[in-house]
Structures are given as C-alpha cells and as structure tokens.
Design a protein around this nucleic acid. Structure first.
Length: 198
DNA sequence: TTGGTGATGTTT
DNA sequence: AACATCACCAAA
C-alpha cells in the first residue's frame, strides 16, 4: 500500500473534522536512518479562544506560539514537570487551534520504541508503549526540540495509507483530565482499539 | 482491576 | 497553585 504525506490543506480545515480524520493516519518519525511509525487511534481537539481547556484560551504566549501558526505544525509542550505531549496545529494562522495525539498503535520501529520507553528487560506489553500522550512522545523521541516542526518536513509527518476508519467506528467522549464545567465531547477514538488509553 | 500517591518543573 | 501525565504499589 502506498503512503501519501498529508498536504497542508488537510490541516487547514475545521479542527473537529481534522481530529476525526486523523484517526487511522500514520505518524512517522525519522531519526538518523531509522523510521518509527504508529497508527493514530485516539485524539482530542482543543479549540483555541472558544475553549477554556485550551492552552490558547488566553491568547498567544511564549509557550503556545506554535498553536497560532497555520495548520500543519507540531506543538509540543512540557507538563507535570517531566512529560511532553504533542499536538497537530489546525486551521489558518491566528486561530490557536490544535489536536492532541493521545494514543497510537505501534507499527514500525517497535524495538527502538521499547528502548526509548525504557522497557528493556521488563515484561511489558506493546500496548503500553504508546497508549497515552506523553508515552507517544517518549516512544517517538519527541521533546522541546521538536516544538514547531513542520509536518510537511521529513523529520515528523503524517501519511494516509489507503485504509479509512469508517464513521461508525469513531466514538466521541469527554476529554481526559478536563474539569467537567468546561468540558465538551471532543475526544475521538477508534471503537474497540486495544491501543487507546483508558 | 481499580484507586491513591509521589515525581518533577513550568506557567500563571 | 495548578497542571491536556505516568509508574508504582496496595487493596480487593
């Protein structure tokens, strides 16, 4: 099956649409001569100034600057003193909207992912490799230096491989770790995927 | 399998 | 003081 890099126009669409369409796409990370690949199974949309749970809610800052670029850039942030999470920026510049990658199914480079995740010698299932936003970043070696990476580059990018997730397989639910008062059903995941978080 | 807690540092 | 989290352990 041929792999086609997602074009800029994919990202320049309404954020909730992009979020749903990201399910089933492949995340590819190239480091030196190695390629890591995972299929996206869970995401969350963050709608900028309309969304009290979004980093962009109070406008542009040093931290969230990348969110205000045009779609197709990677926004990486540091949280809880030790973790990184990564987002795909959406829509046109100035909107501050993005989609958080929450879980992928490991496809290629699994040995390397286990090494990055420090699974060496531990009897852990591959499902625990990338079933959380900070786990993805650890497994794919995504950190501060990758903040602002253009997803049309060859370092980190997304591809479609022909397999499409039917609408009936996409479930929506409340986002994780967001207080009830400001929450919407903007988490999307592939029904029944054993690689989603819980 | 579930729930509680400590780790750890940036942002507001 | 809160935080878009994770790993570990104890309890059931």
């Amino acid at each position: 099956m041929s792999l086609k890099k997602l074009p800029r126009s994919f990202y320049l669409r309404p954020t909730l649409t992009v979020a749903r369409d990201l399910l089933g796409k492949l995340l590819i990370r190239r480091i030196d001569d190695e390629q890591l690949m995972g299929r996206i199974v869970e995401v969350e949309a963050y709608l900028g100034e309309k969304d009290a749970a979004s980093h962009a809610y109070r406008g542009k800052t040093l931290r969230n600057e990348v969110m205000f670029r045009e779609g197709g850039y990677l926004y990486v942030y540091f949280t809880y003193g030790m973790h990184y999470c990564c987002n795909v920026v959406t829509e046109e510049a100035g909107k501050g909207r993005a989609v958080l990658l929450r879980a992928v199914e490991p496809v290629e480079g699994i040995d390397t992912m286990r090494r990055f995740r420090k699974f060496r010698g531990k009897k852990k299932d591959d499902r625990e490799l990338t079933n959380g936003p900070a786990k993805i970043c650890q497994a794919f070696h995504i950190a501060r230096e990758q903040n602002g990476t253009d997803l049309l580059s060859d370092e980190i990018f997304l591809v479609i491989d022909g397999s499409v997730i039917p609408r009936s397989m996409v479930l929506s639910s409340r986002r994780i770790g967001i207080s009830e008062a400001i929450e919407h059903e903007w988490r999307f995941h592939v029904r029944g995927s054993p690689f989603a978080s819980r």
